[in-house]
Simulated scan of single mutants.
Amino acid sequence: MKLPGIDHPLVLLRDIEAGRAFYASLGFTLTPVGKHPWGTSTSLAVLERSALELMGIYDESLIDAMDVGGFKFGRHMRDALAEREGIALIALHPGQGAAEDGEAMAAHGLPYQGHLGFRRKVKPPGRDWDEAVVSLGMLVDPALPRVSHFVAQQHKPELLWVPEWMQHANGATHIAAVTYWAPQPEAALNRLTAMFGPAVAVPGGHAVQTGQGVFRVLTDWAPEFGDAPRPNVVGPAAVNIDFAVPDLSKVAAVATIATPGGLAVPDIASAGNVLVRFVAA
């Protein structure tokens, strides 16, 4: 079994409102800030086939809530944010379901903590308050904390894929790729190929094609990103998100660095220690 692909990266921020304002300046529509039961705050840019999640900490007293297999989501996020801002985890589309997919990946030898279910309050535009019901299959490798994932299953998808939230001034339709910087790439590649299938050589490293988006693992930055700044991280770690847009001219005013694959946003700090790039859909 192979997992379907990228659902949404989680970008950890010390100031979620500042992050929301920055991503709005790039042409994204952001959902109102919501709260998870383990103390993290959340705001999303909901795309047609994927999403971006901005995340902060609103209450450290809750970070040890809802332990699953020794994994505590809130504590993992708090500890990662204490280290630095940036992409902490990547959520994946479900195949059979969060729990079933997690168990299937465990059979492939990947660490699997178990199934985590939760609810959070949501108020789509023009509707009453409701509760999103979500199941997560946690696939976190303690040896690769920044190359870890979870399967995210929305049981009420209509509360997330809301037409008003999916209209973006930049025209973004989906996440085309996520890039890992990995000077020693073997462990990251082994993990990704176990989930998605073979890797192929690309300029600067390797790529693993999924049913939704590409994971790159790079050891050389310039062939893919040219003069664009690389986030300052100790790899392996996710450092870039490529957003597909139908018209690159719509983002040329904010994505001012031309790279071999698209237009990159120069301000990686305001993006949460992430290189945001727009590529042709």
Rank of each mutant, 00 (worst) to 15 (best):
P125R: 13
P125N: 13
G126T: 09
D128R: 12
D130N: 13
E131S: 12
E131D: 11
A132I: 04
A132Q: 08
V133R: 12
V133A: 13
S135G: 11
S135Y: 11
L136S: 03
L136R: 02
V140F: 13
V140R: 07
D141E: 09
D141V: 04
D141L: 05
D141I: 00
A143D: 14
A143V: 09
V147S: 04
S148W: 00
H149F: 15
H149W: 15
F150M: 06
F150A: 02
V151W: 03
V151L: 12
A152Y: 10
K156S: 14
K156M: 15
P157V: 06
P157K: 14
E158A: 14
E158W: 14
L159W: 06
W161I: 06
W161T: 08
P163A: 15
E164W: 08
M166E: 10
M166G: 07
Q167M: 09
G171T: 08
T173N: 09
T173R: 15
T173Q: 15
H174P: 00
H174F: 11
I175R: 02
I175H: 03
V178H: 04
Y180G: 00
W181K: 02
P185T: 04
A188L: 07
A188I: 01
R191V: 00
R191G: 03
L192K: 02
T193V: 07
A194E: 06
A194R: 14
M195W: 02
M195Y: 03
A199R: 00
V200D: 07
A201F: 00
V202D: 03
V202G: 05
G204T: 10
G204Y: 06
G204L: 11
G205D: 02
H206Q: 13
V208T: 02
Q209C: 08
G211F: 04
G211V: 05
Q212Y: 11
G213R: 01
V214E: 09
F215N: 03
F215I: 07
L218C: 08
T219Q: 13
T219H: 10
P223N: 11
D227I: 10
A228Q: 04
R230L: 07
R230G: 01
N232K: 12
N232W: 05
P236R: 00
A237Q: 05
A237V: 00
A237K: 01
A238L: 00
A238D: 02
V239W: 02
N240Q: 14
I241Q: 00
I241F: 04
